[in-house]
Simulated scan of single mutants.
Amino acid sequence: MMASTADGAVPPDDPARQMVVAGRAAGDVRHIALAGNVYSILISGEQTSGRYCLIDMRIPPGGGPPPHRHDFEEMFTLLEGELEFIFRGESVRVGAGETVNIPANAPHFFRNVSEAPARMLCMCTPAGQEEYFLQVADRVESTDSVPPNLTEDEQRARRDKAADLAARYRTEIL
């Protein structure tokens, strides 16, 4: 719903907010490796006054996050490949060109069950998920970077950190 004034009028423009064109300036997109996936933060909450963030997600065969839930909306548009989404225990396969909306607080996760990499855009509203990812992931150079090959101890440390920070970012790992 659009914010409006008490009389229903559209509020004035906020000239402090700027248009953002992701990927145009060197270094404006942050790339991270998380659980074997490579995510690129295209638009951050800082750029949208916290309204939403947009993340380009590249998921290798077998990749995907653990089951989780959070108190914000999440929308995925699959650009390439095929993924299986598990939503409240029910499974659905999604292919390129399809969009999935996950309502706040619902348990869910996804897996790349195909033999090919998948790529999708993820929008979270309000923003904040990108900050959580930046706290727990490893920075990488680009979307084409290979995620670091972590030892079992390093993987455990990342999972522990994610679990410790989850509540701060309105997320629950299931």
Rank of each mutant, 00 (worst) to 15 (best):
A167W: 12
E84S: 13
N105K: 04
D153M: 06
E80D: 13
R88Y: 01
R51W: 06
R69H: 07
E130W: 02
S142M: 04
L79Q: 14
Q129E: 15
E154F: 10
R119D: 08
P15R: 11
T48Q: 09
C53Q: 03
R69M: 07
F109I: 04
H70G: 06
P107D: 02
I32L: 15
V94Y: 02
T143E: 12
G81A: 07
D13T: 15
A104S: 12
I102W: 01
L134H: 08
S4G: 11
P60L: 09
A35E: 09
D144M: 04
V140Q: 05
G63T: 12
P148E: 13
P126A: 02
R139F: 13
A166S: 12
G27W: 07
G62P: 05
H70S: 04
E98Q: 14
R119Q: 04
S44F: 04
L165N: 08
I102G: 01
E90F: 08
D13M: 10
D138Q: 11
G81W: 03
D28V: 02
L165A: 07
C124N: 12
R30Y: 09
F76V: 12
E46H: 00
G128P: 01
E152I: 14
H70F: 03
P126C: 00
E90S: 15
Q18T: 12
R168H: 11
N37V: 01
L134W: 05
I43Q: 06
G50I: 07
F85G: 09
P15H: 08
P66S: 07
R170G: 01
V146S: 13
D7P: 00
F76T: 09
P15A: 15
L134G: 12
D144Y: 05
G50Q: 00
A33N: 02
R58Q: 12
K161V: 07
F109K: 01
V136S: 05
G95D: 05
E172Y: 10
S145N: 05
H31T: 00
I59Y: 03
F110D: 13
M19I: 12
C124V: 05
N149M: 15
L150I: 04
M123Q: 14
G64M: 06
T99C: 04
D14G: 05
N101H: 14
L42E: 15
D13F: 11
L79N: 13
G95L: 03
G95N: 06
H68A: 09
P15G: 08
L78N: 08
A26F: 08
R156S: 09
G63V: 03
M57I: 11
R139K: 14
E172T: 14
S44H: 04
R69E: 07
G45I: 00
L121S: 08
F109H: 09
C122E: 08
A104G: 05
R168G: 14
A167N: 09
D138C: 11
E154C: 01
A9R: 13
P107N: 01
A137I: 11
D28R: 00
G95F: 03
L42A: 06
F85V: 11
V29L: 08
C53G: 09
V29R: 07
V29E: 14
A162M: 12
G27R: 03
R69F: 05
E98D: 09
V92Q: 15
E84K: 01
S49G: 14
P60G: 14
A162I: 04
A35G: 14
E46N: 06
R111W: 01
Y169A: 05
F109R: 02
M75C: 10
L78R: 04
D144P: 06
P67W: 10
G95C: 08
M123R: 08
A6C: 09
R58C: 10
I32C: 10
